[in-house]
Amino acid sequence: MESPEVAHTLNNQKETIQPETVKGSSYRAGNHGHLGPVFRVVVMIAIGVAFVYPIIGLLVAPTRTQANMALGGIAFGTLANVKYAWSQVMGFDNGIYLEWFKNTVIMVGGGTLLAIAISIPSGYAMARLQFPKRQALLFLTLLLMVMPNTVLVIPLFLEVSTVHLLNSLWPVVIIFGFYPFGVYLSYIHYRTALPMELIEAARVDGLTELAIFFRIAVPLSRQVVALVGFFSFVAGWTNFFLPYVLLPQTQQSPLAVGLLQMISSSQLINPEEGLNVKLYMPELALASIVTMLPVLLVFIGAQRYLQRGAMIGAIKE
């Protein structure tokens, strides 16, 4: 069988029986003959097309002109159009787009580093050490993890405005640094992927708990650091509500909030808007595509860890 490839798949246990499964289901379709699997494949491809077609439409939008887009469909225009669209994006409010980009990098970069620095040690302690109220802390972590973070935005606004810190970036960094899912990921990681024997051996050697964490657990944490980093980066980068509320000044906005500003200033919405630049669909599409590029880069960088991360589920004890 195709064993070398099997080793790289997420669901390695079942992969090897793949030929039987496929044959079996067609056989079971009975009087339909091979209609079952064929039908399934057609449905799957149709859904795939429905998922990808709009995305391609968005990706090619900057290569087209507004007039060309009125024709509908998907067509690749020219790179000159992309260049023009970019000049319009850059011209909007004296290149504030770059300012938004910088704000986002500071907020999300800082938040992600903080999330990693906080999640890894606490996840380790909850998984491998004993301390008072450990169960309660774990329960609270799970509870906060499954609650959509939107629910705390207005309470956070009330808190932050009371201490007069609206429009300052660092409260947002700290809030992004609070990432219960990262703690949970670390917790699962250290429970499943770190051999207890290693820790026991280190204890026998007389290392303190802190020394064990820093000298044994941390060097074996690349995987979970990548996972926590990736998920918290994406969560922060795409977050809209929190910065929208905590950073009302345009100068402090991240990209997500800035895009809203571009949409509402666009001649697409207000044809009579007196802007110095032309913001139509190609320009808006380009601005939002460039906004997602860092996420794409981080995704590519973290990909091999993400695949292995999905395998954590396979390690059941």
């Binding site: 903080l114 620095a117 906080i118 999640s119 040690p121 606490s122 380790y124 302690a125 909850m126 050490l129 004993q130 301390f131 008072p132 802390l137 609270l140 972590t141 906060l144 705390l152 309470p155 956070l156 009330l158 808190e159 700290i174 809030i175 640094g177 609070f178 219960p180 703690v183 303190t208 708990e209 802190l210 064990i212 964490f213």
Partner: peptide, 24 residues
């Protein structure tokens, strides 16, 4: 219980209190 454990969870507990519990 180890003192080490408390040091390791302390930052998370502080941020959770500040950002997760206090606002509520």
């Amino acid at each position: 219980p180890s003192k080490g454990a408390l040091i390791l969870v302390a930052p998370f507990v502080v941020v959770m209190a500040l950002v997760g519990v206090l606002p509520a």
